[in-house]
Amino acid sequence: MFRGITEKRLLWFLAIIFIVLLIFPSILPRFYTYIIALIFVTSLLAMSLNLVVGYGGMFQFHHGVFYGVGAYTVALMLTKTSLPVWVGFVAGPVMATVTGFLIGWFCVRLTRLYFAMLQISLGSLIWAIAFRWYTLTGGDDGIHGVPMPALLSSQNNSYYFILVILTICLMAMYLIVKSPFGRTLQAIRDNPQRCEAVGINVRRHQLKAIVIATFFAGVAGVLFVVLERSVFPDLLFWVLSLEVFIMCLLGGWFTFAGPILGAAIIVSLRTFVGIYTEYWTLVLGVILILLIFFLPEGVMGYFLGKFRPLAKEVAHRSE
């Protein structure tokens, strides 16, 4: 299925990374395993956002909502109902997708800035509801101690579970990006007017992209609950969404794997900067300004740009 898309060497490289990641929990301290798992979850979220932002060119400014909806759905299903666990795990992404469709339906009718502003606002409504509906969502406190099946009870097992799901999702996203759908989406990003003129219903295509991306965001939300066993309104808060946006920018949004790099950098920075100072957002703001001024294509984009002649040659050989 993947043959021809990727070079053999790259596949080997990825396989080695995968094996190394499988070994990690048995050699690293608990805390680091946790941080890496958190990076996985956040990477999936950032990657899903990048489908819309980097490949779709839409200003999806409140992507965290779909992550939060996925997380809240699974947490509520597992704590308040006695349905089987897998139903909750499926319901999370499904609810995220439904929300994505509803919000996206409004947003794709608007131009880029309208789109961004309206999405921040509509997403914040969901945040406000989760925040105030104390009897259902626990309001400010959120829901803690979400029960997990025995299989996922240890942290190492959740780590493996998250790693496997992440890998499956990444493969699926890679296929999507390389599919006719993904190629058309990139064409829309580059030039929506031209796309209309070659017979593409741009809005419908964009809405599909949003729905797909929100599905993966919902999966990330479920994985978050698997890792943390809790949910809280901050998951739905727009500042988180913008933080994820920064991850895409930092890693490089015209690259496939860039957001993973961005997520890894931001999550580890937040963890380790958090030890020394409570002013994390100040640090984040400064990082963002430095990015805007010095690295607008992101870290990955910068290096790919530096080695573009090389990259082009590789592309030649693989065609």
């Binding site: 200003f59 957002t281 100040l282 984040l284 703001g285 400064v286 963002l288 300004i289 805007i292």
Partner: peptide
Amino acid sequence: LLFTFALMLILDD
């Protein structure tokens, strides 16, 4: 747009 966001983060802290 992102600059104004960075400004918000910095001003808040």
